[in-house]
Write a protein that binds this DNA or RNA. Structure first.
Length: 113
RNA sequence: UGGAGCAGGCGAAGCGGUCGCUUCUUCUUUUGAUGAGAAAGAAGAAGAGGAAAGUCCGAACUCCAGAGGGCCUGAUGGUCGCUAACGGCGACCUCGGGUAACCGAGGGAAAGUGCCACAGAAAACAGACCGCCAGUUUUUUGACGAGACUGGUAAGGGUGAAAAGGUGAGGUAAGGGCUCACCGCUCCGGUGGUGACAUCGGAGGCAGGGCAAACCCCAUCAGGAGCAAGACCAAAUUAGCCCCGCUUAAGGGCGGCCCGUCCAAAGGGGUGGGUAGGUCGCUAAACCAGUCGAGUAAUCGGUUGGUUAGAUAAAUGACCGCUGCUGUCCCAGACAGUAACAGAAUUCGGCUUAUGUCCUGCUCCAGCCA
RNA sequence: GCGGGCGUAGUUCAGUGGUAGAACGUCUGCUUGCCAAGCAGAAGGCCGUGGGUUCAAGUCCCAUCGCCCGCU
């Protein structure tokens, strides 16, 4: 139903990041890590972290856009609102769009909330 | 037909649609004090590049009180132009490379200092190893020859990246610009050119190695830092302690030093505390496109039209349909692909680097045909 | 975004323009019943990459690639 990605659904503050990194739980795969925590709000929030080691600016931007697209399309998969940080790993530029979609869905299903 | 050289263009193929993001404008609702503003929603408009990249130069802009002089330091380097400026661009000059189209390089080594390993007799007020020639003398014996000494010489040999112009002729005891011709070089003068320089004539028998991307000299240019510059707002904290200083100061004034000048207890330094957020700067400018004129050109001037991203854990994405193009195959069709380099972060002018079975024009060379 | 620094042997580093070195490590031999230590010797380098200046470049100049650090 709601496939928008409003500004408040993005994590932007330094405080939120440090809090999540300290308290959040982690899931790891070959392509990206996922830090998550139920946030107690009425909506979920997300952020993408891609370091310079992954690639040049073009590559990093493409990864960020793909994660944003996946998040807004698949909000219904989350059983309760929570904060998510996606941390890209070195192997991720090798994935095609279809492969990343499958990877994303399997990771979300592994969340135990 | 093949191979080269130069110049330029385009660069998510085009059209339509669905979902979503950023900014602006207008409107609606909620909140708020009928304000400023904030939040949510709707409609419309706009939304990555030729290199946005590297950060290699040059500027605008901001702050450093002002941006003055000198020295150090750094940069540039044929000439004349263009430009806001430049290490950029244009035209020309000389030298070098290429069969050619064309390409590359560029002050000074008769101001001084320094360095030229190895080899070689000798490597920088030149000198003489092997040689060549003459004379004297010894040996032998009559000569040739051989040795020693004295003198002449730099043609030949060999070393090296480099060794007191080159080739030829005359001349000479042997040689040598010793003399002559041609080429090269230096100096003087004329002519042409704004100039680098070119060219013509005359004189001189000839000066003397290389390296300034070694120090350096000459000419020109440069104050420093950078939008994380800098300004403002609200909140919070400290408005304490120590040290220096009121005039012949110390200290500071953003690469260093000196002069000059300015600040100077509402100051400077240290300690302590803080380094969390918002707004502005922030997009209309040495702008872009067309056209006319000046100029060989870079470029300049006039005129008409256009408005073209402003994010901040940082917006341009995902998908569908049709058309076009390319490739493969079993060719009235089917399948696959539609790219490469790459993503604005204060803004411009350049340079450099990356990039495509892409496109256009001009030129050169070779082969074949007429 | 802006500013600065470094690339040399397997590793850590030296290196006036003139044959690339040291220490540790590796390998071989000696020594020992065996190992370590010790002694003797050897191998190992396109000096990050590509141009230029020079007779000659690890060194000087230009471009480029990679890595590291600082500034809100």
């Amino acid at each position: 139903m709601d496939e928008r990605l409003r500004p408040i659904e993005r994590i932007r503050k330094q405080k939120d990041f440090t809090e999540l990194y300290r308290r959040g739980r982690r899931l790891k795969s070959r392509y990206f890590h996922l830090v998550f925590q139920p946030n107690g709000l009425e909506y979920s929030r997300m952020a993408v972290v891609v370091s310079k080691k992954i690639g040049k600016a073009t590559v990093r931007n493409r990864i960020k856009r793909r994660f944003k697209e996946l998040f807004r399309r698949n909000k219904h998969l989350l059983r309760q609102p929570c904060d998510l940080i996606f941390i890209a790993q070195k192997e991720i530029p090798k994935l095609s769009w279809e492969e990343l979609q499958a990877e994303y869905k399997s990771m979300i299903s592994r969340l135990d909330l």
